[in-house]
Design a protein around this nucleic acid. Structure first.
Lengths: 252, 252
DNA sequence: CGTCCTCTTGAGACTACTCAAGCGGGGTGG
DNA sequence: CCACCCCGCTTGAGTAGTCTCAAGAGGACG
């Protein structure tokens, strides 16, 4: 029993992600999949783009956790965004002279480096993809707004719960989470740099969630035991992710 | 002694701001200025766009301080961005179904409500403006990244100093700051909601800066007495604002 | 087998918060 | 014109949340 024709490339993360935002043709999907030939396995804690660079390649994460981050003179690191499978990074950074942050892997990752020119020309030939990427960018911005709220006015427990809920939704949208958990191959230090907490306090906060039987985290696998309760703690509203069931209104 | 021809519209904030990013023709400038006819005076603490709305108008601030903000169920408010004179807000929000934040004035403001269709058609006829707006958007994103760093890993004193430095640069770029200060008509509570601090702690933090003769803030006028020292406290690097002397490289 | 890295837990310190009270200026109504 | 009131600023006191320093345990890897 053959899969429907239009699903031929749907094993590809980026296709899965964008098709939820804007229905793609089989032709679109193929062109998209072609962009990520030559993907490479990258070790954890590897810098992919450096602060101050003017990269002529765009990063596409296919597997694993990567991140945008900024390093402070004090040695502190702030993680600005998690780059999950299907996330395309710095698509329009070419407009700026220099990056004001760096991009690196947290875990081992499968990453494609897409020449900007190739991306641009593909987008010109596939306007639906361009529209989907604009929507994806808006989602990203909504996430970073929520992160500012997180560090700005939530307690450690609330922040942690909120992040775990967000990842559940985002990863599920690209097929990297089950109903009650996901692979979570990052360190507690990474988590601290994400949430603006010390690694020690991250540990204590996780223990509270574990002691309340809300989560379990072993062998790089996060199990969400009580999602409703976790969402309640975080006052988590999935709406901001704009990824509910796909196919947003398409003005303009 | 007549002003040079191309300066005819340069009394307009948005023209001043965008012309620094991409040189505009007199024709561009005129079209831009036309968009803000019908600007209105708005009282402080007025909501301009509401969370959940799908606005068909874009906000242009001509005078005063406005802000994007998110309200929490707990009653807390997080300010996501300051909208200063020359800032154009939610230019591409039309792509999303619903706003996940609201926009409101902090101080009394002069604001233009620009119908999205008018903006779009002007941008189609003036591609330089469209390019300038894309660059302005990138600046905004850089600022919000820096804000995340601010609340994520800086102390109260550092956060405050950093914000004051940022405003000095941003306001000077649109002619709303002198070399050593600017009008600063917002409350300490607003400042707290911006920096993730309580209003009480904002007050104490300001007193430290005042006691060290770094700033003076009276009658809604902020005077920066020692900018280098303030920048040193904040580890402030103006580079992220990408507004140094204008006319960035223009790829693509 | 040793080393390194991450996780874990304890103890003590410090930053920032909450609650509370007083002050001062600007606007409003008598 | 004056009195009052409200809102924002200021300062104090005590508390809570988070941080730093430190030490030990458990794995992974060479």
């Amino acid at each position: 029993m053959p899969a429907p024709h239009r699903d031929r490339h749907h094993h590809h993360v980026l296709v899965r992600k964008l098709d939820r935002l804007v229905p793609l043709t089989e032709d679109d999907a193929g062109a998209l999949a072609d962009l990520s030939v030559g993907a490479r396995q990258v070790r954890p804690r590897t810098e992919l783009l450096h602060e101050g660079d003017t990269p002529d390649e765009v990063i596409l994460v296919l597997e694993g956790f990567a991140a945008r981050c900024k390093f402070q003179p004090t040695g502190h690191r702030q993680i600005l965004a998690h780059l999950l499978p299907g996330d395309l990074c710095e698509a329009d950074a070419g407009h700026l002279s220099r990056l004001d942050f760096s991009v690196g892997t947290l875990s081992a990752c499968m990453v494609a480096f897409i020449p900007r020119r190739a991306l641009v020309s593909t987008l010109e030939r596939h306007p639906a993809m361009a529209r989907a990427l604009r929507l994806a960018k808006l989602q990203e911005e909504a996430i970073s707004r929520e992160w500012l709220v997180n560090v700005g006015c939530r307690s450690a427990l609330e922040r942690m719960a909120h992040l775990l809920c967000e990842l559940q939704v985002r990863l599920q949208a690209v097929g990297f989470a089950t109903r009650n958990g996901y692979g979570f191959p990052i360190t507690q230090q990474d988590l601290g740099d994400t949430l603006g907490l010390s690694n020690v306090h991250v540990n204590r906060t996780l223990r509270v969630l574990r002691d309340q039987n809300l989560i379990e985290w072993r062998e790089r696998q996060m199990r969400i035991l009580d999602l409703p309760q976790l969402q309640a703690i975080a006052a988590f509203k999935a709406g901001y992710l704009h990824s509910t069931t796909g196919h947003e209104s398409l003005p303009r």
